[in-house]
């Protein structure tokens, strides 16, 4: 199961959640499969998708927020795992697509093959954590996960995809992304 395979299985389950995507391949793959006015693509500031998701979840407790993260991003900002667990927003779900590699920069290995990120989220105090390693297990876990009270963390083990980017570059400018999400949330 590649990143694209996993995202393809998740997309049909999504409704009006606010989806915050981490930078690199993850944003591009997700955008290529499904876009919505409540999708936010973080093109820089690696590591901070979880922090942005936390801020949105706290600012809009009436809306569900899903962070689409990668192992490199989670490892870069482990502190926010702790903050999310401590603040415990019930409307925040955290997906981590884990290929144990920095796929966007040439697939240099990360250490997530030896450091279980779902166990770290659990140790921090997420209300629920889980791990799936096959497409079937992902299909089975998804409805329950998406209905959970957060903070919940689902690690999706994926394999490296074929060489090259898994989706198009995001056509929106960053300021357009800000404006459309704020409009969609009635923030403007």
């Amino acid at each position: 199961m590649t990143l694209r395979d996993a995202l393809q299985r998740i997309a049909p389950h999504l409704r009006d959640e606010i989806c915050v995507h981490s930078n690199g391949h993850l944003s591009r793959a997700a955008f290529g499969l499904r876009d919505s006015d409540t999708s936010f693509y973080m093109i820089g500031s690696m590591g901070l998708a979880s922090s942005i998701g936390l801020g949105i979840a706290l600012g809009r407790p009436d809306r569900r927020v899903i962070v689409f993260d990668g192992d490199g991003n989670v490892l870069m900002n482990l502190g926010t795992l702790a903050t999310i667990a401590a603040v415990a927003p019930p409307n925040l779900l955290h997906l981590c697509f884990d290929n144990s590699a920095h796929a966007s920069t040439g697939s240099q290995p990360t250490i997530s093959d030896r450091v279980a990120l779902d166990a770290m989220a659990g140790a921090a105090g997420y209300r629920w954590t889980g791990r799936v390693e096959s497409p079937e297990a992902l299909d089975e876990a998804l409805p329950g996960f998406l209905a959970r009270s957060g903070p919940a963390f689902l690690l999706v083990r994926i394999a490296l995809g074929p060489p090259g980017a898994p989706g198009p570059r995001i056509p929106w400018t960053p300021t357009e992304m800000t404006a459309r999400l704020r409009r969609a949330l009635g923030s403007e």
Binding site: L48, G55, I56, L58, G59, A82, T83, V87, L185
Partner: peptide
């Protein structure tokens, strides 16, 4: 007040809060 672990993480939370209609 929400104490964060690092300043850049605090900025990330603030960015999310602004997207959600708050002024951080």
């Amino acid at each position: 007040y929400l104490g964060e672990t690092r300043e850049d993480a605090a900025l990330g939370v603030a960015a999310g809060a602004y997207l959600a209609g708050r002024l951080p």
